[in-house]
Design a protein around this nucleic acid. Structure first.
Lengths: 236, 236
DNA sequence: AAATAATTTTAAGTATACTTAAATTTTATT
DNA sequence: AATAAAATTTAAGTATACTTAAAATTATTT
């Protein structure tokens, strides 16, 4: 399975399941930085390999085989992130960038070794769930975006859903990290901004940020998960 | 730089510097499992990219740029082997196989992180020297093949020069491992076999093996190197 | 030194993964 | 419902990294 094919399948999976965007060839092409024509070509080819269903002018849908491949890649990606984060004290953005390459060259054998070494972690340093070897993905309903939080309450950060360097730089700068606690001091209705208190500082965050920073109630340790914690974003 | 190009350059480097075979396209092709025609094509193309010198019907020679690329890959390969061996208790053959893939997807940044984490090791678990970030390779004249050892003496195993599973399986089975000590009980002249004593067992090894198992004198800790130790095989 | 063998190169062709540009189809607008 | 805009598909073409088969060159044998 080539890297191009793997990335194509993963892009469909992520658009469909995680980002809730549609999976027409054009959207996948944009995500991967290739032409629409290339995406259509690839879609047709992968349909013959039973990785996805292709109907002209319609959204692409992964087959079971395609979905398994995508989840397997996501597993490897997140295991690498967890390992690199633990061993090397790298930033969230750096571990993402390296994992994006390593995931394609990782045997199931090695993935299991990494997982065992880390004691089969359920979440990576972004708070994203790590699929099990069999493809099962934990779904936690106790976590929700900061935009839905309530004024005056204190929460634990549970997930940072992004892969953009600027966002992670901002988070690192202000102590926004899975496991840390924040207090919501103000939910401004008129401009949809949220004021929070963290590390003795006050921050004002707009919707772009409060939609991708996830939090949970302080006592909701339903799943006894480790530091980088919980989530409920659509992953199945 | 594609994986195919990287492997091509590395094959020239290894044939030339380590295995002492010649580097005509045919030998490189055999090593990589591609056709002679493909090797010639590739050689011509890489000559235009200043990675090697190409003259019809002659051996390929890496340029300085090509040599640097090869050494950088060897560095990443051996760092991965050292890391995987330390973390995951994998066999010498397994770490080689995984490193062979990972080396191509490893940034210099990550390689340096791995090196620092391992406290800048000078040797990998096979006893092969790990090139420094700048490309310097330790050369140790105190180590030599078991075939050149003397009857009755006891040595420390310093290097296992191979990438064949069968060899490593044999080594693992009999405790042949860098850092372990062996006593040469017999050097048989007539059939070039060597009898050794290791782990309370006697083994009879033929030339194929005694040429790729390297040892050093017990007190020759000239370079204060760690367990997987020393070497003097041609690497520059 | 000529003949034979082995190796290398050239030539022609294939699969993958793209590109741009034009044609087609769908979606949105009025 | 017709038209304009947007997206998708088709068509033609490119670069990479190979293949096999034939031609050219080098190396070996007698």
């Amino acid at each position: 399975m080539s890297v191009a094919v793997e990335n194509f399948i993963k892009a469909i999976y992520k658009n469909g399941v995680q980002d809730n965007k549609d999976t027409k060839p054009g959207n996948i092409a944009k995500k991967l930085g290739i032409s629409n024509a290339a995406a259509t070509d690839m879609a047709k080819k992968l349909a013959t390999r039973d990785l996805l269903h292709y109907k002209k002018y319609q959204a692409l849908e992964l087959t079971e085989k395609g979905t398994k491949l995508a989840i397997n890649l996501v597993r490897k990606h997140r295991l690498w992130e967890a390992l690199l984060f633990k061993l090397f004290d790298m930033s969230l953005h750096d571990i993402h960038r390296e994992a994006e390459l390593l995931e394609h060259q990782t045997s199931d054998f090695l993935a299991n070794k990494i997982s065992a070494y880390l004691r089969n972690p359920k979440f990576d340093p972004h708070g994203d769930p790590i699929p099990s070897e069999k493809g099962h993905i934990i779904r936690d309903n106790n976590t929700f975006p900061l935009s839905k939080s309530k004024e005056g309450k204190t929460y634990i950060i549970s997930r940072l859903l992004s892969d953009e360097k600027e966002f992670f730089d901002f988070c690192a700068l202000h102590g926004l990290k899975c496991g840390n606690s924040i207090t919501v001091t103000n939910q401004l209705q008129f401009n949809k901004m949220t004021q929070i208190y963290i590390n003795n500082n006050t921050l004002l965050l707009n919707e772009d940020f409060t939609n991708i920073i996830f939090v949970k109630e302080i006592n909701s340790d339903s799943n006894s998960s480790p530091e980088p914690t919980q989530n409920n974003y659509k992953l199945f």
